[in-house]
Design a protein around this nucleic acid. Structure first.
Lengths: 97, 97
DNA sequence: CACCTATTTTGTAATTTTGCCAAATAGAAA
DNA sequence: TTTCTATTTGGCAAAATTACAAAATAGGTG
């Protein structure tokens, strides 16, 4: 596999890596329904806030979520709705067998 | 986050983990066009055949690809075409910004 | 200004993933 | 049968990911 192709698939894999964690998948569902702050998400999931901050950073860097600042808070929302479509399709196909 | 929800998202994350590797994404594209054996894929990607075998096993266990035996060979094909749809959607949305 | 709350960064240890090699299996071909 | 060829498995070291705690930032509030 040549360098070009290698690079192309490494970049695509980054998106899947960003999605490949239970907490981050939960975040995606949560911020699809409603904008939520780091602290609000932390309270729901019940993990260390620094850990949550890092999960959000990974999703943000991959442009899967977007943050909007309001006072001291940053409210996140889903930027790529097709993630949810894919998930329901994949689950459906996989469970059918 | 309670145990039920935790479990649900852990299972979903497994699918994304299976996809979160450049070689495995390449495989998915390759076996969408044409059934390919372990050795054929190994030659194209140029990695150790045992490594390729393990990548295929991860995809197979997650029901993303399916293998069909013919003589000494196992030919793989894509089992979840919507993976490719999601990929093109995600790339499109992400690059637009 | 000092204080308080939200968020990020740094450090670090534990866990998981990855890839090669060597060995084991499976089964076709001769 | 023996000999190939294809594939899988086990072991192990390197690399990447994860989560917590503590410290640092950011910026609003009193």
């Amino acid at each position: 596999m040549n360098k070009e192709i290698e690079k192309e698939f490494s970049e695509k894999a980054e998106i899947f890596k960003a999605l490949a964690h239970p907490t981050r998948l939960f975040i995606i569902h949560a911020v699809n329904d409603k904008k939520l702050s780091v602290k609000e998400l932390t309270d729901i999931v019940d993990i260390d806030i620094s850990t949550m901050s890092k999960h959000l950073d990974i999703l943000k860097k991959n442009k899967i979520i977007e943050g909007e600042k309001f006072k001291n808070f940053i409210y996140y929302r889903l930027a790529i709705p097709c993630v949810l479509d894919f998930m329901s399709c994949a689950i459906k196909v996989i469970n059918k067998k």
